[in-house]
């Protein structure tokens, strides 16, 4: 079973890796900012460029941010998910009308 310390250690490593990747991506964007802005503003089929770029950044930078919070010990409550489990176990009253046979 993983201890909290192991989890933090793994998160630190991932934060470093994704952090390095994120910084590289941001550095690349700002190094080539002018041609990039021009290319992305061409419109038409080029509209896929900003969309795919933000997907890439949300994966890399999103993982970086997530691991930073975990490495800092800021995590969800241990009861997270239990509320929804409780909701799933509570059966909803079936209000549908049924065909009945009077014999």
């Amino acid at each position: 079973m993983k201890t909290a310390q192991d989890k933090k250690k793994k998160a630190k490593l991932h934060a470093l890796l994704f952090g390095a990747a994120s910084i590289s991506l941001y550095a690349a964007v700002f190094k080539f900012a002018d041609p990039m802005v021009e290319l992305y503003a061409k419109g038409g089929a080029y509209c896929l460029l900003p969309v795919s770029t933000v997907f890439l950044f949300s994966y890399v930078h999103g993982n970086f941010a997530s691991n930073v919070w975990t490495a800092l010990g800021i995590e969800a409550s241990s009861s997270a998910g239990r509320k929804s489990d409780k909701a799933e176990k509570t059966q909803r009253k079936d209000t549908r009308s049924r065909a009945t046979l009077k014999a």
Partner: peptide, 16 residues
């Protein structure tokens, strides 16, 4: 984006 209105620098800074 079809009309070329997205300034990708602004988007990525806010996203960060």
């Amino acid at each position: 984006a079809f009309y070329g209105m997205v300034d990708i620098r602004l988007t990525l800074i806010i996203l960060a």
